[in-house]
């Protein structure tokens, strides 16, 4: 369970960093344009697409290692 909790916390921190840390460090500026978009407009388009990849990886890890699985009642996804 500790392995699963560690993975979950890492995923939470990564998503939070993408939205907050990366925004503050690299994208909160008016120029230059990225793919024709102002930096923040670009970044807040990218992160909602990256986040499911992060959480999807966590899901696969969770399905493999989470001991709670045996108490789940729905079919495996």
């Amino acid at each position: 369970m500790i392995r699963m909790l560690t993975a979950w916390l890492a995923a939470v921190l990564l998503v939070a960093f993408l939205y907050l840390g990366a925004t503050a460090l690299w994208f909160n500026r008016p120029s230059p344009l990225i793919l024709g978009m102002p930096p923040l407009v670009f970044w807040f388009l990218v992160v909602p697409i990256v986040t499911p990849l992060v959480l999807g990886t966590l899901y696969l890890f969770d399905r493999r290692y989470n001991p709670q699985q045996d108490y789940f009642t729905d079919a495996s996804g």
């Binding site: 979950w8 995923a11 939470v12 998503v15 939070a16 939205y19 907050l20 925004t23 909160n28 923040l40 807040f44 992160v47 909602p48 986040t51 992060v54 959480l55 966590l58 899901y59 969770d62």
Partner: peptide, 18 residues
């Protein structure tokens, strides 16, 4: 740009909700 908080809040919440 302050409006972007509303995009970030739900995604961090989904990660917690997992």
């Amino acid at each position: 740009a302050a409006a972007y908080y509303n995009v970030a809040l739900n995604d961090v919440a989904y990660a917690l909700g997992f």
